[in-house]
Write a protein that binds this DNA or RNA. Structure first.
Lengths: 142, 142
DNA sequence: TTAATTCGTAACCAACTAGGTTGCGAGAAA
DNA sequence: TTTCTCGCAACCTAGTTGGTTACGAATTAA
């Protein structure tokens, strides 16, 4: 599926957790809101936990809580947690070093792709989890 | 592999074509510079042709030429040609409509992802194919 | 007309990613 | 001890991508 999907599911789950600060959210709860399987939710949550965005607790009354406040979590942090380490731009293609284009284009495009990804993350960083939560539960919008 | 790979290969091939304006570049030529198979190059070139960036000619002395000048082709156009139509952000997940988060988050995240992709393309649009070519063959840099 | 060249594309395979599912061990609370 | 919950491995399916072979269609040239 689209790589967007893991990101949107992760953000969705973070919003669910943020909206229930008084309790731990189980992978069953999260999966129910996202409409997927608890194991899939746990796989996403494991990536968020590795990035330090959520913490987990096993056993009865266990589940997941935010490790930072919703104001401290922006969507770029979630995207980075989900996407993992950036791989080399050119795998598996080593351009032909005999060709002048093959020789010179790799550093050019590596830098360009890096800047493009940076622009995407900068845009995502403009929105914090607290903004998402506020727009989901607008203050007295009725 | 990384989706970056198709984009970098496409840009690489466009640069090869731009550097040989006096002749048509065959899929064999392009594949040789990229270090891949002619059929793979033709698949990339088919996407570029559908987007109107290159034109093709069959038969002896045939091959590919740019359909626009290198100044008129920016890297966002190449990325759009390669990525194809943008799919729905949420496939295959329809969030649970019973959950308040599932109900409200879809339009929020659709807009956010759209803006993030737009920021990436805007960054790519800053570089034109002519810029790539100029940096590959710097004017009297020795 | 015939031959050679080149693209267009289908078919198949391998590798990788992702989601879905089952199962089970580890940790924690009642 | 029992129950709940995460952590994680294992397996399946589906989709994307690259690599390869093959062949038809278009074009050029002899």
């Amino acid at each position: 599926m689209a790589k967007n999907c893991r990101f949107t599911v992760a953000t969705h789950i973070c919003a669910v957790i943020a909206l229930a600060p008084e309790r731990a959210v189980t992978s069953d709860d999260a999966a129910g809101s996202v409409n997927t399987n608890p194991v899939v939710a746990r796989r996403i949550l494991a990536a968020l936990a590795r990035a330090g965005l959520v913490s987990s607790q096993r056993g009865p009354s266990g589940g997941y809580r935010l490790a930072l406040s919703p104001q401290e979590i922006d969507l770029a942090a979630i995207a980075r947690a989900i996407d993992g380490a950036e791989g080399p731009v050119f795998a598996p293609h080593a351009p032909n070093p005999v060709c002048p284009v093959g020789r010179g284009i790799q550093p050019l495009l590596t830098e360009i792709v890096r800047r493009a990804d940076g622009a995407r993350l900068a845009e995502l960083a403009k929105t914090r989890l607290s903004d998402i939560v506020a727009r989901l539960a607008p203050p007295s919008s009725g």
